[in-house]
Amino acid sequence: MYKIVRKKVLRPTVTQLEIEAPLVARKAKPGQFIILRVDEEGERIPLTVAGTNPEEGTVKIIFQVVGATTEMLNHVPEGGYLQDFVGPLGNATETEGINKVCIVGGGVGCAIAMPVAQEFHRLGAEVTSIIGFRSEDLVILEDEFNECSNKLIVMTDDGTYGRQGNVTVPLDEMLAAGEKFDMIITIGPLVMMKFVTLTAKKYDAPITVSMSPIMIDGTGMCGGCRLTVHTEEGDKMKFACVDGPDFNGYEVDFDEAISRGRMYFDYERHAHEETCNLYKMADNA
């Protein structure tokens, strides 16, 4: 069992947990993820590491309530326990040879982007961060990004905070103005990453995307996380858990990944509703 040492509600549907997992805390690097189960009947869900405290032996995760399991996770109190917590999984984000980087985060993906931005800052790279949210009430981690970025641009879809528009707008402006990055790293919803990649492509700018497909074991056994990359030698099947989660944005078949991500859409929506109803009944009782 893994103790939730601290719990912080960042936004009504976005929560930060610090979990006691000393072995994971000692090893996890920016870009890697963990898999957890809330209880012994629970499903295994992957979540990216948002930070570690090796001395204390804790791992930070930030998640948005989007389905039944994240709903249940959100109901575990501070001091409570998770059934399983395993990692770190996947490969750390490549930092070598990158002195000037642009981090483009979207929504709760910013929680994953943050430690990557911090790592580049720690290594002395020049960091530009663009973080985007649907609306003001979903904006997270602005202070943290401010601390580790030479330049920070906050975007909201509806203009209720920061600049109005998609994250691609300021990226396009910068690239059009001749700004050169050693790497653009984007982490967020698939559709956003697809369009960030298309924007980068207009200027031949190198781009890394962080994929988080459906998976079960996370160790290369189930093959559920497979995706297609288009390479010069033809199409190849890759497994996000062992080959990723970071991939060259130009090579990823986003449309296929988007389609595969919706495999259990109806099931998940139904399961989430059921779970919410159960919590409502418990609250009323």
């Binding site: 499903e43 295994r44 079960i216 074991d217 290369g220 056994m221 189930c222 093959g223 559920g224 497979r226 995706l227 297609t228 099947m237 497994f239 062992v242 078949d253 296929e256 389609s259 595969r260 919706r262 495999m263």
Partner: peptide, 29 residues
């Protein structure tokens, strides 16, 4: 380790499983 696929068109469609994934979902999960 990694499940093998046949390298034929359509293996990324929804409803295509490796036996490892299918059995793990049913047995372990």
């Amino acid at each position: 380790g990694l499940p093998s696929f046949m390298n034929i068109p359509g293996e990324s469609l929804k409803g295509v499983y490796s036996a490892n994934e299918y059995l793990t979902r049913s047995n372990l999960m």
